[in-house]
Simulated scan of single mutants.
Amino acid sequence: MTVVLGPNRYGKAEIRVVRVTRDGDVHHLKDCNVGISLSGDMTDVHLNGGNAAVLPTDSQKNTVYAFAKKYGIGQIEEFALLLARHFTGSQPTIHHARVAVQEYSWERQGPHSFVRSATETRTCVVHHDRDGGSTVVSGLQDLVLLNSTGSEFHGFIEDEYTTLRPATDRVLATTVNARWRHTAASDHAMSYDFGKSYEEVRRCLVEAFAGTHSLSLQQTLYAMGERVLAAREEICEVRLALPNKHHFLVDLAPFGLDNDNEVYFAADRPYGLIEGTVLHDDAPAAGPAWD
C-alpha cells in the first residue's frame, strides 16, 4: 500500500483589520476578520520540509493590512477577490486561493462615533483559481427573527418517546445563518453591486419569514430561499441553517392563573436545527464554493 499526500492548504486565520476612512470630520469604519487559505505545489514542503514554494502566513497577514491601506475596504466581496487574485497572480506556486471575510456592523452615532451592532455579521467566501475562475458566496450570520404567532406544528410522527404536544399557535424564533451563491460575479466583480445585493437578499429573508404562516420551520426555510431566488436574478443558490429557538408556555396553573399564550420560557438548548438548500434547477455546479 502506497501513502500519498492528499488535498491540502495553508494560510492565516483570524486577521482582524479595522480601516478608518477620514472624509474631513466624517469618518467611515470597516471592521473585518479575514481568513486566507492557499493551495498549489506543496508536495515538497509536506514530504521533505522544503519551503521554496511557501508564501509565509505572516506575509499573507501583512498583505491584508497593506491592501486595506492601498485600496481601502469597500464591499467585502470585492476586497476578498482582490486578495485572492493577488495571491494566485503573484506566486507561481499558488494555484488556488480561498479568502473568507466577516464584517462586523457599527451604527453611526455622530461624525466619528459608532455603536457596535448587537449580533448580526455579514460574511463572504471567495475562491479563485490561477486560470481566472472565481466563485463568490455571500452571507449573514446571527440574524435573530421572531414571530409571536402565525406558526403551527402538528401531524408529526408520534412514537413511544414522544411527549411534544401538537401546536396550532406558537412562537417561532430563529437565528438565521444564510449563505447565497452569485451566478456571474466572477466576470463582473468590480462593477457588481454586492452591497445592494446583500441588502435585498436580507430584505427577502426577513419578509419571507414574517409573511409565511408556518406549519413547520422547514416550510419557512423553503419560503425564505424561494423569495430570494424569485427576486434576485444574480443569485442561483441559497443555503440556510435555522435553529428553532424554542419558546415553551409556562404552567401558571399552580398559581391559579391562566396562560393564554402570554408567558413563555425561552430555552437556549437543546434546540432543533433545520438546514436546507434552495436553488435553481439549472444552477451551475458549485465546485468548492461552499467550503
Rank of each mutant, 00 (worst) to 15 (best):
V3G: 02
V3H: 15
G6C: 09
P7W: 04
G11A: 07
A13H: 14
I15K: 00
V20Q: 00
R22K: 12
H28C: 00
C32N: 13
C32S: 02
V34C: 00
V34T: 08
G35M: 00
G35F: 00
S37N: 10
L38M: 05
D44R: 10
V45W: 03
V45Q: 01
L47D: 04
G50H: 12
G50Q: 11
V54S: 05
Q60G: 09
N62D: 14
N62T: 06
N62L: 04
N62Y: 01
Y65H: 10
Y65A: 07
A66P: 00
Y71D: 06
I73K: 08
G74S: 01
Q75W: 00
E77D: 06
F79I: 06
A80D: 11
L83C: 09
A84N: 10
R85Y: 03
H86D: 09
H95I: 04
H96K: 13
V101P: 11
E103C: 12
S105E: 12
S105R: 15
S105M: 15
W106M: 09
W106P: 10
Q109A: 14
V115S: 13
A118K: 12
T119C: 11
E120N: 04
E120C: 13
E120D: 03
V125G: 10
V126R: 12
H128N: 10
R130W: 05
T135C: 14
S138F: 13
G139L: 15
L140H: 12
L140A: 13
L143R: 11
E152A: 14
Y161T: 09
V171Y: 09
L172Y: 10
A173R: 12
A173E: 08
T174A: 11
T175P: 01
N177R: 15
A178K: 07
R179H: 14
R181V: 12
M190Y: 14
D193W: 06
F194E: 07
K196V: 10
E199I: 03
E200P: 00
E200G: 01
R202F: 04
A208F: 13
A208V: 12
H213D: 12
L215K: 09
S216T: 06
L217K: 04
Q218K: 00
Q218R: 00
Q219Y: 06
Q219M: 09
M224K: 07
E226I: 08
R227V: 02
V228G: 02
V228C: 08
V238I: 07
V238T: 05
L240T: 10
A241M: 02
L242H: 02
L242G: 01
P243K: 03
P243M: 06
P243Y: 05
H247R: 05
H247C: 04
F248A: 10
V250I: 11
D251L: 08
D251F: 01
L257N: 10
D260A: 12
D260F: 03
F265T: 03
A266C: 05
A267Y: 02
R269V: 11
P270N: 03
G276M: 08
D282N: 10
A283D: 03
A285H: 06
G287A: 06
G287F: 09
P288F: 00
